[in-house]
C-alpha cells in the first residue's frame, strides 16, 4: 500500500504535461559566463530484489564562458524486499567541464567538452553508496541544430579500490515537436541509450530510454523518461525498469 501511494505521488505532476538539453545524457552546451541553475529529478528504480528512489540536486556554475564547475547532492531511499528501508545522503559528486572545441553556425552548433567528475564516499549507510572514491574522465560531444539534437558521452571511471574501472557510453537523439520560439514553449521527444561496461567482472549493461520534455518558459523545464534495460550481463541485482521525472531551473 505504501508503495502504491509512493508511486501515485511520484507521477501526479506528469499527468499535467505531456529541443532542450538531453535527459539522461550530458549536454555540450553550457550557459556561458555566470550561467547557473539547478537541476533535480526523482528516479525510481525497480530491481529484482529491491526498489530504489534517487533524488539528486545538481548545481552547475560557469566560472568562465568555457568552464563549468558543479556539485551533485544525491538523496537516496532504498527499499529492499527482505529488509528495512534506508534513507539518506548518497555519495556527493563534484564535476568540472571544459569546452575543448566548438563550431558555431546559423541555428546550429557542434561542441566537444572534456569532463572530470569526482565522487566521495559520503553515504550515510552502506546501502546508499559504496565506500569508495570514483573518478570519471570523459568527453561530451554534441551536434545541436534547431531541428535535431545528437549527443554522446564517452568516458572511463576508475576507483581507489581496484585497478580496473568501467567504461561509460551514452547516446541521445532529441527532436522538437513544436516550432522553435523564444521565449520558449516547447515539447521535445528524446530517445536515449546508456551503456556501462565494468571491465574486471565483465559486467555489462545497456538501457534504452524514451523521454519527453516540456519547456513552458525561459527558465524552467520539466522532463520525464523511462529506462528499459536491454542488456544486463552478470548483474547482481538486475533492474526491471527505471522512471525519471525532473525539472531544471535557471537562476536570474
Amino acid at each position: 500500500m505504501r508503495f502504491i501511494f509512493f508511486m501515485l505521488f511520484l507521477f501526479l505532476p506528469t499527468g499535467v504535461f505531456a529541443q532542450g538539453p538531453p535527459i539522461t545524457v550530458d549536454t555540450p552546451i553550457m550557459l556561458g559566463l555566470s550561467g547557473s541553475g539547478v537541476r533535480t529529478f526523482g528516479k525510481f528504480v525497480s530491481k529484482e530484489k529491491s526498489k530504489v528512489y534517487i533524488q539528486p540536486i545538481v548545481l552547475p556554475y560557469n566560472i568562465l564562458p568555457k568552464v563549468q564547475v558543479g556539485v551533485q547532492l544525491p538523496l537516496k531511499a532504498v527499499f529492499p524486499d527482505d529488509n528495512e528501508a534506508v534513507f539518506g545522503l548518497s555519495n556527493v559528486l563534484l564535476f568540472g567541464k571544459f569546452e575543448l572545441f566548438k563550431i558555431d553556425g546559423k541555428a546550429e552548433t557542434f561542441r566537444v567538452l572534456g569532463v572530470l567528475k569526482q565522487s566521495f564516499p559520503t553515504a550515510t549507510h552502506v546501502a546508499l553508496g559504496e565506500d569508495i572514491f570514483r573518478t570519471y574522465t570523459g568527453l561530451v560531444i554534441g551536434r545541436v541544430t534547431s531541428r535535431l539534437g545528437l549527443y554522446s558521452n564517452v568516458g572511463y571511471t576508475f576507483t581507489n579500490k581496484n585497478g580496473v574501472g568501467s567504461i561509460r557510453y551514452d547516446l541521445s537523439l532529441g527532436v522538437p515537436l513544436l516550432s522553435q520560439q523564444y521565449p520558449p514553449h516547447q515539447l521535445n521527444l528524446f530517445l536515449e541509450s546508456s551503456g556501462d561496461y565494468n571491465i574486471e567482472p565483465g559486467r555489462h549493461s545497456i538501457s534504452l530510454s524514451p523521454g519527453i520534455q516540456y519547456i513552458p518558459g525561459r527558465r524552467i523545464l520539466f522532463e520525464s523518461s523511462v529506462q528499459i534495460p536491454i542488456l544486463q550481463k552478470r548483474a547482481l541485482n538486475p533492474t526491471r525498469f527505471s522512471i525519471l521525472f525532473g525539472t531544471r531551473f535557471l537562476f536570474n
Binding site: 532542450g20 556561458g32 555566470s34 566548438k102 558555431d104 534547431s146 539534437g149 523564444y182 527558465r219
Partner: peptide, 18 residues
C-alpha cells in the same frame, strides 16, 4: 546582431541574461 550557435531556446536565456 546575428548570433551563431544558438540552437535551442532553453539555452538562449543565458544570452538574454548577458
Amino acid at each position: 546582431i546575428y548570433v551563431e550557435g544558438l540552437s535551442c531556446p532553453f539555452c538562449a536565456y543565458g544570452l538574454e541574461k548577458k
